[in-house]
C-alpha cells in the first residue's frame, strides 16, 4: 500500500483541495501528485524518463476529472487503457456530473470506478472518505482489476 502513489488530475483547485482534505481525513497518507490540466497528466504518465514504470515497484492510482483544460479526461482515460504500460493502472473518475451517458461512456472506456461529486458536503466528504477506505484496502494488481475485500 505504501508504494501506491495517487495521481490527482483536477483543474479546480478547490475540488483538488477538498479531495486532499477528505483523503487525509480518512487517513490516506499516500503521496499525491496533482495536475491541473490534462497535458501535464499525460506528460507525467507517458514520460519514459520518470520513475513511473513497472520496474520501480511504485504503483499508481489515478483520480481523474473529466472536464479538463488542454486534454480532457476521456482522452487520458482512453490513452491509458489503450497502452500496455498504463492499462493496468486503476482509474477512478471523480467528476461533477452524474449523467448516465457519461457514466456508461467512462465504463466503456475502461474506468474502474465512477464517483460523482455530490453537492451536499456531507455526502461529498463521505464519498471521498469511502474512497479513502476503498483505497486503503485496495491492492493494485499486476493486471486489470481492482480487488476489494469489502
Amino acid at each position: 500500500m505504501e508504494e501506491v502513489k495517487i495521481v490527482l488530475v483536477e483543474d479546480d483547485p478547490g475540488h483538488s483541495r477538498l479531495i486532499e482534505k477528505n483523503l487525509v481525513r480518512s487517513k490516506i497518507t499516500n503521496d499525491v501528485v496533482k495536475f491541473s490540466d490534462g497535458q501535464q497528466a499525460i506528460d507525467y504518465l507517458f514520460n519514459e524518463n520518470n520513475s513511473f514504470n513497472a520496474e520501480s515497484g511504485i504503483k499508481h492510482l489515478v483520480l481523474l476529472d473529466l472536464n479538463l483544460p488542454v486534454v480532457d479526461g476521456y482522452q487520458i482515460l482512453k490513452r491509458m487503457k489503450s497502452e500496455e504500460k498504463t492499462k493496468n493502472i486503476p482509474v477512478i473518475i471523480l467528476t461533477t456530473t452524474n449523467d448516465p451517458r457519461e457514466v456508461s461512456k467512462c465504463y466503456d472506456l475502461g474506468c474502474n470506478v465512477y464517483i460523482s461529486k455530490p453537492l451536499n458536503y456531507e455526502q461529498f466528504s463521505e464519498a471521498i472518505q469511502k474512497l479513502g477506505l476503498f483505497l486503503s484496502i485496495v491492492t493494485v494488481p499486476e493486471e486489470g482489476k481492482i480487488y476489494a475485500d469489502y
Binding site: 479546480d12 477538498l18 461533477t96 456530473t97 453537492l119 458536503y121
Partner: peptide, 15 residues
Amino acid sequence: HDLRGPLVNMTGFAG
C-alpha cells in the same frame, strides 16, 4: 455540468 463545479466548492468549503 460546469456550474456544478463551483457549487461543489461552495458546499465543500462551507462544510
